[in-house]
Nucleic acid binder design. Structure first.
Lengths: 364, 364
DNA sequence: TTGAAAGCGCTAACAC
DNA sequence: GTGTTAGCGCTTTCAA
């Protein structure tokens, strides 16, 4: 392990021990301090001396102060850790997540920080990756309540910001949306159009349980603790049903294990198999909704379909949905994490959402 | 700077100096080695002692060995650096890049490494981020020839892998495709359909020059050194023209500064303004091609359009394109970087591409 | 401007 | 199974 990579002949510098700051100092005939200053406080030495030092560094193949040693000394890693509940690669396939990453990435770039993507694989439970991350702080995004990775983050002395989920973590900043109100808003729209036999496709990730289908009241109970976001949206739906004086039993909910287009199609099939008289299908993400549209296009009937997020593809598909500022969420998370300002208690920000009505929703 | 973040009351542990391994050892009454072993070689102590140590750690709020100190000692960062030519956020908006990241991410996850995204902002020239990155190796993807970030990577003792561009870096592994042959293949298809008045929309990023339009021979000269990929594709086009006994002067090339859908539309407009008799437009990316289709749909004429990459949206749009295994590229880059195996010289892999013919191309 | 001294927190040999 | 010793490479007072 120790000389991992030593068989790479790729790097010429492999083999010869990497030059150190001390070596450069010796070569130039100055102290280590001076060389350190040449890199970190160029104004502390004469330009001429600096040039000599840099020349020597170049000759010796010295690439500048070792980042690890430097970090150990300064207690600064110049990087931010971002923790996802899913495998690293998954994050890149979810358009909503991509938007969020975009915001995080830009905000980091602006502050000269790098972004460390930390794979938080559900099964393995290796909070090790968190323990070993050399970062100045963590952004924890959309992980289930009680996830061990969060515990690992909290045990570390660096600050953290939670996004979307879990909803409440003592003493930690939070950024999210009002999921309950937002979903109630689309649902109100759907009820307002006269729909009463409504299907819902939602996601319940990270659990090995099979997909489950049932009435809204029945499904509201399940997964309550682990998935506050899903729960809140279903509650919003319930709110809207109550407001519309509609029977919650008329709402059929199916849960999918993965947020994927294909799963949306399967969900639609499942719902229609259970209750062929549905006139509307609401989804907790645009991706699912697009899948529902796929399935409906295949079958023929033209039901009302709604999504959530307003990803770019939603506009193209004419999907009625809820827009949430994913990119802004990312920016804000980094801002909260890195920009210090005096304050006495953790920040809790709910960003505004808005209902976007398009062609996919219409009268019952 | 030093106590950056100390105003966060977010973390209870802030303020009280973070516990160290030594403190835990003192508490339990064992040596530091033993505590270190408890974390890194659990089989080296009795389970009972380990439990006592962990309990003490918990009490003291010790989150495990400090990653920076650990890395300094072990020379392992447990992370891989990924360098992009564009701003961090940009990477997430390019579907091809997303596929690539997906592959890189998965491969890292499998090996228990984190992924450090390193923003290589063109203008600022701050190779500093590279110098300060605590990683075990670098993947350098699609950056211009002569980019200072690459020089920074090469000066560091860690191994590196280059993807796509620059084409040749002495002593460093390379992963890419045969851009010339691949583009010659689509071009051959287009010429084969009888097209002779052909437009090309390509990208020349990172330069502050205005968009330029001109005949293929004229444009072939420009940006030659900095953008080998673009150059190779244009050469492939030339190859195909020669093979089809078509006059290269009939090919009109326009360059855009950004790889974006809107730029494709603008490119199409520019081409048609210059040469209204075009019957086909070839693009160096699907994104550009989709923009071209947008513009064409707006105007009415139905030209042959081709893309490059075969991103998911290409299939939906019926776009004829060249499929390249972006995800595989990412996986392979990590494999080359991390999986040691004996070999005497740098690896150079060109992955296979394939022409995907869809509805967007047809007879002239 | 420059240098000397001190130590960041940890792990790897090697002894016991 | 556990401890002792010796740094990893750097930055930072503080004094010259």
């Amino acid at each position: 392990m120790e000389n991992s990579g030593s068989q790479h002949l790729a790097k010429p510098s492999r083999g010869r021990p990497a030059a150190t700051l001390a070596a450069v100092a010796a070569r130039v005939g100055v102290s280590r301090t001076t060389v350190s200053n040449a890199y970190n406080r160029p104004d502390q030495l004469s330009g001429q001396l600096r040039d000599r030092i840099m020349a020597a560094a170049e000759q010796l193949g010295y690439a500048g102060p070792d980042p690890m040693a430097r970090s150990l000394r300064t207690k600064q890693a110049d990087a931010v850790g971002l923790i996802f509940s899913e495998r690293l690669g998954y994050a890149f396939h979810d358009p909503g997540a991509v938007e969020f990453l975009h915001g995080v990435g830009e905000a980091c770039t602006e502050r000269g920080r790098s972004l460390l993507l930390i794979p938080a694989v559900p099964g393995a439970g290796q909070a090790d990756t968190v323990r070993r991350a050399a970062v100045d702080g963590f952004v924890v995004s959309s992980i289930p309540e009680g996830d061990p990775h969060l515990a690992a983050v909290l045990s570390r002395p660096q600050p953290a910001v939670v996004v979307d989920s879990p909803r409440t973590v003592a003493g930690v900043d939070f950024v999210g949306i009002d999921d309950r109100a937002a979903f109630a808003e689309v649902a109100g729209h759907v009820f307002g159009l006269g729909h009463r036999r409504i299907g819902v496709v939602t996601v319940r990730r990270g659990e090995q349980v099979a997909a489950a289908t049932g009435s809204l009241p029945a499904r509201l109970g399940a997964g309550q603790l682990q998935h506050p976001v899903r729960q809140l949206r279903l509650l919003g739906l319930l709110d809207a049903a109550v407001a519309a004086a509609a029977a919650p039993d008329g709402v059929l909910v199916t849960e999918r294990a993965v947020n994927a287009r294909r799963e949306g199609a399967l969900g639609a099939a499942e719902l229609l198999a259970t209750e062929p008289a549905l006139t509307a299908i609401m989804c907790t993400s645009d991706i699912l909704a697009l899948g529902v549209l796929d399935e409906l296009a295949r079958r023929g009937p033209r039901l009302t379909v709604t999504g959530f997020d307003d990803v770019p593809a939603a506009a193209a598909a004419g999907l009625t949905t809820v827009r949430q500022p994913m990119e802004e969420k990312g920016r804000l998370a980094i801002q909260l994490l890195l920009d210090e300002r005096p304050r006495s208690r953790p920040d809790r920000t709910l960003l505004a959402t808005s209902l976007v009505i398009r062609a996919s929703s219409g009268p019952a």
